[in-house]
């Protein structure tokens, strides 16, 4: 038994552990990608669609499913940097409803392929993720920019919102840089906006503001109502994002005036819960 032997064996152990620190573990991603997928990956698409009924996923949730992130001791390991992809939450441009899918918009095709390959065996909420590769120009960006425009005008007031949705001008396709800028401009509005379902149809906006006087509401108006079923959807703009979140936490699922027919459903637009 030589001392040298022990030393080299220890070196081996250290290097194996050093290697594992990167979080690379065999079998966390599938090495073979189907031929059909390969052909789609080859064309220049840069976007992936993820279907989910949960509206509160964030960008970090998509980054943290990378196998390197799970099995590496350091929090920021892996190749993923901040600008590798943008997460776009699909919302209806008119009523701002979440449309059960997210779009991951990558910097380039290469980054997308890398992400697609490494997450092929990952899970979100214990369910294997299934990304759909979107073709290059699928019209997602115009929908998003219309949503952003409508939301901005809704935040200004009911009048400008209804004017804006009436116009429905075709909006030119944005470049990715513009999209990032647009997203950044929408973030402060989203965190100050909430949607409330099922407020009584006869309530006027000043009634609502009186009722929720405790919260710093900028303005609110009806986005949608149905006299037959009594369903209403209100848009509420806040001055302070904290109040927006507070209202959601305090009133989501509450029976308005203790009436079971007015069971409020509150959703914040940035998905905080």
């Amino acid at each position: 038994m030589s001392c040298l032997g022990i030393m080299s064996a220890r070196k081996t152990v250290s290097s194996v552990l050093e290697y594992l620190k990167s979080g690379k573990v065999l079998g966390t991603r599938s090495p073979q990608i189907l031929q059909s997928e390969k052909s789609i990956l080859k064309n220049e698409s840069t976007a992936l669609r993820y279907k989910s009924y949960y509206p509160s996923l964030r960008k970090e949730d998509f980054i943290s499913i990378l196998p390197e992130r799970i099995l590496a001791p350091k929090a920021d390991s892996g190749y993923m940097s901040d600008d590798t992809f943008q997460l776009v939450k699909c919302r209806d441009p008119k009523f701002f409803q979440f449309q059960d899918s997210y779009i991951l918009l990558f910097r380039d095709n290469k980054a997308m392929r890398k992400y697609y390959e490494s997450t092929s065996l990952s899970r979100i909420f214990k369910v294997r993720v299934k990304f759909n590769i979107l073709p290059k120009n699928d019209g997602m960006i115009p929908v998003y920019s219309r949503y952003a425009k409508n939301l901005e005008s809704a935040f200004q007031g009911g009048e400008s919102y209804f004017k804006s949705i009436k116009e429905e001008q075709p909006i030119e396709d944005l470049s990715e840089q513009d999209l990032i800028l647009l997203q950044k401009s929408v973030i402060p509005i989203e965190e100050r906006s909430a949607l409330i379902w099922n407020l009584p149809i006869q309530l006027k906006s000043h009634n609502i503001m009186d009722k929720f006087w405790f919260y710093d509401i900028k303005h609110c108006f009806k986005l949608y109502w149905d006299t037959q079923t009594g369903k209403t959807l209100h848009y509420v703009a806040f001055n302070d994002p904290v109040d927006c979140l507070k209202l959601k936490r305090n009133f989501h699922g509450v029976n308005f005036d203790d009436c079971p027919q007015y069971k409020l459903l509150v959703e914040t637009l940035n998905g905080e819960c």
């Binding site: 032997g5 080299s8 064996a9 081996t12 050093e18």
Partner: peptide, 13 residues
Amino acid sequence: MLSNVDGAAKQAG
């Protein structure tokens, strides 16, 4: 990564 893996390592201690 380990340029000089010693064969003796497996028996050594």
